[in-house]
Design a protein around this nucleic acid. Structure first.
Lengths: 241, 241
DNA sequence: CGTCGGCTTGACGACTGTCAATCAAGGTGG
DNA sequence: CCACCTTGATTGACAGTCGTCAAGCCGACG
C-alpha cells in the first residue's frame, strides 16, 4: 500500500527496518475515487490523512464567483492532506483530477509516531515542508513568470516528481497527464483559452507535446531554460534529517 | 526573547510550564539586522533557525533577469526559517524589509525537542503548516484575483497577523508597514507603478490609507468583502493539537 | 448517428507592464 | 541654514499579455 511513500521517504533519508514496518502498517485500507470527485471537502475535519496511490489530485479553492485556483498537485506516493493532522481543519478542498486510488492513515496512528518515532516524525514533517517549498515556487511562477514560462515550469516539475516515483519515462521525458486544459489553467492562473494558445506556442517551439493524456518533452534542456527551472526546491537529496 | 513566539503558540494550543521553559531557553542571543540586508542567504545551510523579534522580513526568490517575487512575509513572533531544520538547504533568501531584531535557535536544540517533546514538536510543525496555508492563500490571490483584491487581501492578512501578536490597533484597524511600494509589488506580483495606481483606487474607495509607514483600514467590512478575505486559513484557533 | 465534453480559433477589450519624466521628502555637506 | 543628492512616490502615454465571448470542430460514447 505505502510502497511509493516508503520509496519517497527513502529518497530523502535512510530508513531503518522498524520505520519501514511502521509505515507499511499505516494505511490498512484503500479505496477508489472517481475523476472529478472530491477526495477531501473544504472545511472538513479529517480524522485520518489520505495517501495517493494512483492518479492525480489537486488542492484547490473556489471563490464565490466561481474562479478556481488549484494550489498544488499531488502524484502517487504523496499524502494529499498530511497537514490536516496538526491543522485539524481543511482550509481547501482536494479533488481527484483523474480516477484515483487512495489509502488512509488514521491521525491516531500518526500521533503515536510523533510520540515514539522522532526521526520518522521529522521525515513526515519534511514532506509537508517540501509541499510548502513547491508552493513557494508556484508563487514565483504565478507572480513573476509569463504563461509560457509557467507552463514549462509545471511540466518540468511534474516530470521530476513523477520520475522520482518511477512514473515517468526518462528516455523520452514523457509522462501521463490525464487532466483537461482547463485544469492546467486553474493551476497556472490562466484561462483554458490561453492554455491552448500557450500550448500551441510550445508545440511550435518543439519544446513540449501533449497528445491524448501523454506529455512529452523532446527538448528537456531547452524547456528547462525557457522555464528557468531549477529542481533544488524539490529537495530530492538523501541526507540525515 | 521568545515571548511573542510563546504567545503565538499559546494561541494555538495550551502549553504546559515545561514547554514554556524550553521555549524560553531556545534562543539565547539576539542581534540586529539592517533594513535591506539578507537575514538568510539562498542556498545556505543554516545550523540554527531565526526567530523574528522586531521588524518585518520577507522570503524571496530573484530570477536571473532581475524579477523578484516575495513569497511570504514574517511578522514578530514568526520563525523566518524553521523549515531549514528538516529541509537543510535554503531554497530561497530571507530579507529584512525593515530594520529587524532576530534571535537564533540552534538546530541541535530543535532536534532535542523532537526527541523528547512530541507535543511541542507537533506545534512547531504546525507553525510551518500555517506558513504553507498562507502560501496557498497567496497562490489563490496571485492566480485568480485582481490587483485590487490582492492588495486588500494582503492588508487584511497583515492586520490579522499583527493583531494576534499585539502589534495592531484594533480600534482603527491600523498597523505599521515600513516597506516600499516596490516591496508590496513584489509580494503581489505587480509592478511598483501598478501598486501606486491600485493604492489610489483604494483611497478613492475609502477602503485603505497608507501614509508614512502606517496602514489604516477605515472600512474593515468593506475591505473584507472587496478582498474576499476569510481568515480561517490562518488557523488562529486554540485546540488540542 | 446524435449528443456531449473538451479542444481550437478569431475578434475584441482590458488589466497591467514599460518607459520616462516629475514631484516630494529626508539626509548630507558647506 | 541652505543647496544638493538620493530614494521613493506619482503621473502620463503607450504597448502587450491575457481575458472574454462566441462559434466551430472533433473524438468518444450510448
Amino acid at each position: 500500500m505505502t510502497d511509493l511513500f516508503v520509496r519517497k521517504l527513502s529518497g530523502l533519508d535512510r530508513l531503518n527496518d522498524e520505520e519501514v514496518q511502521i509505515l507499511r502498517g499505516l494505511t490498512p485500507q484503500a479505496r477508489s475515487v472517481d475523476a472529478r470527485a472530491d477526495v477531501i471537502v473544504q472545511g472538513s475535519r479529517p480524522t485520518s490523512s489520505t495517501l495517493l496511490l494512483e492518479g492525480l489530485t489537486g488542492r484547490y479553492r473556489i471563490l464565490t464567483d466561481g474562479r478556481r485556483q488549484i494550489t498544488s498537485i499531488d502524484v502517487p506516493g504523496d499524502f494529499v492532506d498530511l497537514h490536516s493532522f496538526p491543522l485539524k481543519t481543511m482550509d481547501h478542498g482536494v479533488i481527484a483530477l483523474s480516477a484515483c486510488r487512495v489509502a488512509t492513515a488514521p491521525h491516531a496512528e500518526l500521533a503515536r509516531i510523533t510520540e515514539t518515532q522522532p526521526h520518522l516524525t521529522r521525515l513526515l514533517w519534511l514532506t509537508t515542508l517540501i509541499d510548502a517549498a513547491i508552493h513557494r515556487e508556484w508563487l514565483v511562477a504565478l507572480g513573476r513568470m509569463s504563461a509560457l514560462e509557467r507552463m514549462g515550469h509545471l511540466f518540468c516539475e511534474l516530470y521530476m516528481r513523477l520520475n522520482a516515483v518511477g512514473l515517468a519515462d526518462a528516455q523520452t521525458h514523457s509522462f501521463a497527464l490525464p487532466v483537461t486544459q482547463s485544469d492546467v489553467g486553474d493551476m497556472l492562473g490562466i484561462t483554458n483559452v490561453h492554455v491552448n494558445r500557450t500550448l500551441q506556442d510550445m508545440r511550435r517551439r518543439n519544446l513540449v507535446t501533449w497528445r491524448g493524456a501523454t506529455v512529452s518533452i523532446p527538448d528537456w534542456d531547452g524547456l528547462v531554460e525557457v522555464a528557468r527551472f531549477d529542481a533544488s526546491y524539490l529537495h530530492q537529496e538523501r541526507e540525515p534529517r
